[in-house]
Nucleic acid binder design. Sequence first.
DNA 1: GCACTTCTGGACTAAAAAGTCTAAAAGTTT
DNA 2: AAACTTTTAGACTTTTTAGTCCAGAAGTGC
Lengths: 203, 203
Amino acid sequence: MRTEANTNGKMGRPRGFDEDTALDAAMRVFWEKSYEGATLSDLTDAMGINRSSMYAAFGDKEALFRLATTRYANGPAAYLREALEKPTLREVIESTLRGTADFLSNPDNPRGCFSVQAALACGTDAESVKQAMIEFRKHGDAAVKRRLQQAQRDGELETGVNPADFSRYLGTLVQGLGIQAANGATKAELHRVVDLALRHMGY
Amino acid sequence: MRTEANTNGKMGRPRGFDEDTALDAAMRVFWEKSYEGATLSDLTDAMGINRSSMYAAFGDKEALFRLATTRYANGPAAYLREALEKPTLREVIESTLRGTADFLSNPDNPRGCFSVQAALACGTDAESVKQAMIEFRKHGDAAVKRRLQQAQRDGELETGVNPADFSRYLGTLVQGLGIQAANGATKAELHRVVDLALRHMGY
DNA sequence: GCACTTCTGGACTAAAAAGTCTAAAAGTTT
DNA sequence: AAACTTTTAGACTTTTTAGTCCAGAAGTGC
């Protein structure tokens, strides 16, 4: 099987698959079926590798899931980080909501938002995974909050508004859109929800 | 064991538990752990009954879940139907959002919204349950839409606004609040999100 | 009190899950 | 090409799951 030369300096047979490609496939399965709903067979089938290879390369199901989460943040969900880097508050907000509507209706992605679909509620032995996803979502809200504090320093956001509250409000809209998408809302429908949200915010 | 007289007209030993009480307990378990995450033992333990009694009284796990869903709609979620009966549009909207914030921070309820927590994403053999919950949520949005159409006839909602879009917008807020609650947002925090939403809508 | 019917407890079954193990295959280095 | 190391395939194990079964308990109506 063709592979690049062994990168880790060690000898031995090189891995017959690309870790990142396999991880992408696993991410999609978790996204569609949730942590508990995805079986090891679902995962390895999609990844195109054997069970042993999965365990050797990634550890176990939970470790694979955590890696998939990171990959989600840096891959499909990177648009959110980029939105926060826009120069003005207005652009930040528009780009966050428009980007979300586009993201959620991208036919290449499973319906809904990974961070909500994957492990919102679950059985007792997936409790740690659920907790990790809570932290993941809070982490996102915190990044928005910091950007809003910046906007407040820039005089773009009235001082009467609490950045933590406003970030929770934006998070509510973004994650609410995720549920609408999971319900099957189309791209146009999601954008019309964003139209209303923006209009109400005065944009 | 004390029971009312046999209501179904037939003879035999009467049921040793109250169906509705047991169903409430099952509903809570599904709400906390999701359909797939709730094991039969979780359920029967919470219901305080034996496995055989559960199967005899409710059918199987999926049938129990569907009954629990109906009970949710008529019990804890009834506040939403009541909100739609308010005389003015403003009251409908305020009551929906305020009611949701209260509902989601009621310490007697599990965190989050049953209709989202219970089966948003799941494995292949729970697909039908997932679909049923999509219908459940859409059904709710449709009821809001009808109320908004009424408001439009009453001249309370500008004719330029599409009731279907506006109902999706409200659904986005309500379900987004559910995720915030699942993240651990407090009652005050949820109400401050609602403050922002209402203020932006001009209320 | 007796015949009858339905419920109940708990052991049992079958299927599916995650995770392990071993022998063979496939590269790498010298 | 030979020695070495790691990967791979797939069978295997263990645990957990939903669902079944049956013997006995507990009511009802006459």
